[in-house]
Amino acid sequence: MVGRGITPLGRHRQRERFARAVDAHPGSEAGAGDEFAAELAVVALLREAAVTSGPDEAARARMRARVLGAAERPPAKPVRLPRPRRTGARGRLAVALAAALCLVFSLAGMSLLLSRDALPGDALYGVKRTAESASLGLTFDEGSKGYKRLEFAAARVNELETLVDRYRESGGGPLGGYLTALTDFDADAAAGSRVLAALGSNADRRALDDLGGWADSQADRLAGLRPSLPAGATDRVATSLDLLTRIAERAAALRARADCASATTGEVDQVGPVPARDECAAPPAATGTTTDATSPPPAPTTAAVPTTPRDTPGATTTATPPPGTPAPTNPAPPTTTTPTGPLLPLPTLTLPSLPLPGLGG
């Protein structure tokens, strides 16, 4: 069919003639049947085989239905719609309460921060005192509470110094701030004195020393501030100074009776336990014997046991301790006793013979 040496254009024309010969009936084009006779015979056999050996219409319908059924999409999952949010009165109330709590906490925190430098007479001074009371409530040790009370009282003196510096050029400033600071000072000082005086009179003498030293130092500070205070506060400072004097004297009195059998009378006044007024007697000594570690141990004592002297004159006997006596750590050399007088003869006892059954007399 195809010869060698055909150009590409000739090959293209040959393919077109073969295509027209296949589409037309055999013999429709001149020379086509002779040129492509063998190829056209093959095409005719293929067409006949496709008609006779292919599936019939029923089989084709079944195949088409199966292919279309397999190609169907799976059923889609049901889509859940979001629940509508409740925006009723209850939801609005919860949001409002949460916002109110956040506002209260933020305001409380800011108030605590701003009240650290508040002075008596300021708007935030009450917040400062409330924070001090809260910190005192979170302290559980009695000694720590007493020292914290003294710390608060010393803070009131600091506030008085700040007030004096602030209103030095304006004539002293408001009198109410000074009176409030002095009143709070007396309350904290008395409460701390009661706690530390009771603690010092029972067990801790160091608390009495701390209490007396604190009272003296605060008295010096108030005495130095007294000339700079307003006229109405000058007389009020005398009351605070008198309280500090009583605290110092009470600490000294309790310290003096620390080694007495009765240190207090059992009564408590404004500054603490009242010291006893009777003569200081030493506490009763503890029962039992005590041995000093530095003193040498006592020499062991052994009781002499009477022994019967031997018949031989000049014999010596050794004293033996009674049973149950512990052996001494540094035993003394054995003692000997020598009779100084003549030996007395022992009396001779004669026992009567008793007849026994089965034996002679």
Rank of each mutant, 00 (worst) to 15 (best):
S353A: 12
G360V: 02
R310S: 12
L196D: 05
P345D: 15
A41K: 01
R47A: 15
P339K: 10
T335H: 04
L241H: 12
P355T: 11
L199A: 12
D184Q: 11
L93R: 14
L356H: 11
G360N: 13
R257A: 05
L208G: 07
L163A: 06
S111M: 12
G200H: 05
G176L: 09
R11Q: 14
S144K: 13
D117N: 09
E151Q: 08
P74M: 05
P345Q: 11
N202A: 08
V22T: 06
A181K: 02
V43F: 02
A197C: 12
M63L: 14
D117R: 09
A19V: 00
E57T: 08
R255I: 00
A251M: 03
S262H: 09
L254G: 03
A238K: 13
R277D: 15
S240V: 03
G232S: 08
R226H: 05
N330Y: 04
G54N: 13
P322Y: 06
C260K: 01
S217K: 15
R194W: 03
L349F: 06
D141M: 05
L81P: 10
K128N: 12
P321A: 10
A253H: 09
L124Y: 13
A207T: 06
D210N: 11
L124D: 14
D122A: 07
A256D: 15
G88I: 02
P284C: 05
A89R: 13
R255Q: 13
S28M: 12
P347T: 14
G126I: 03
S228R: 15
V271E: 08
D311E: 12
P357T: 09
E35W: 03
I247P: 07
S262Y: 02
V127E: 11
D34T: 13
A303E: 15
G27K: 01
K148T: 08
R62A: 11
F140T: 15
K145A: 05
G200Y: 08
R310L: 09
D188S: 06
L343F: 03
L225G: 01
G171A: 11
L93S: 13
G173I: 01
A261T: 05
Y167F: 15
R80D: 09
P297M: 03
R166E: 15
R116L: 01
F152I: 04
A94Y: 09
G121F: 05
G121S: 06
P82C: 07
V237N: 02
P297N: 06
R66N: 04
M63H: 13
L103A: 15
A276V: 00
G172R: 00
R168F: 10
T307P: 00
G69I: 02
G314E: 14
R47I: 07
L225T: 03
L351Y: 11
R129P: 01
D23P: 01
E57Y: 00
V274W: 08
P78N: 08
P321Y: 10
D165A: 14
V127F: 10
T287D: 14
L119R: 11
E57Q: 09
A38L: 09
P306N: 08
G224P: 00
E279M: 05
R11P: 00
A49E: 13
A258T: 07
T264C: 07
R129W: 04
D122Y: 04
R92V: 10
L229I: 09
A315P: 02
N330L: 03
